[in-house]
Design a protein around this nucleic acid. Structure first.
Lengths: 114, 114
DNA sequence: CGGAATCCCGGTCGATACTG
DNA sequence: CAGTATCGACCGGGATTCCG
């Protein structure tokens, strides 16, 4: 059983949804993986500041939620690829809405402050 | 200066956006407040399990981010109302996308599991 | 290369009690 | 009614080390 970051599911599916995408790095990871299948260290390089531990952690949770798929290639050197599942792809409109809102309403504020 | 739940802003406005709406109770609170102006204890009653401390905390952060407005009525008994700001209203499409995705893709999973 | 295991610190949050 | 104050447990997550 995976740990609940928020409260008990059941009454409100929105909370379950937030539980899936809220996580320190998940949304950004999803944007990158949605853009195309990525390898472990490839993601690590894309997210400077993200430790291996957290990268593993976040990927595992996304995998447990059925959002991404983990493919292991038994070869030397080892190779693991992460890709979106069909379920994960359904997140696209939501992530896009998030992106649009960020660009139109949040970005102007950030640049205006400095 | 308000604490950063995620990492440093700047490179990716999406992170800033997530920083605004990700919070244990924020999205649910926003749904309720967007539905109509609410009083403090009114929100408390709508969210069983949410302590006064956290309610205050989350409301203050939303206020600091300019998402909601806090109106104090100087009377006895005291009365404080929370409502959406114009900026907060721009969140509507995003919250709606979140709701739609939850209903169509998350809810079926929850009910199927039990 | 892609992790797992361990240690450990600091923030988060619940519980409880008090106030204008 | 709408908060604030204080205390303490818990755990998220960074650093480091080791493994197949």
């Amino acid at each position: 059983m995976r740990k609940q970051r928020h409260k008990i599911y059941g009454n409100c599916p929105v909370e379950a949804a937030m539980d899936i995408i809220s996580g320190k790095w998940k949304v950004v990871l999803l944007f990158h993986i949605m853009d195309g299948t990525k390898r472990f260290n490839e993601l690590g390089r894309l997210l400077p500041g993200l430790t291996q531990r957290m990268l593993t952690n976040q990927l595992r949770e996304l995998e447990a939620d059925g959002v991404i798929a983990r493919t292991v290639y038994l070869e030397v050197p080892p190779k693991v690829e992460y890709s979106m599942t069909p379920f994960g792809m359904t997140l696209e409109p939501l992530l896009k809405a998030l992106w649009v809102w960020s660009e139109t309403h949040v970005k102007p504020r950030l640049t205006a402050e400095e």
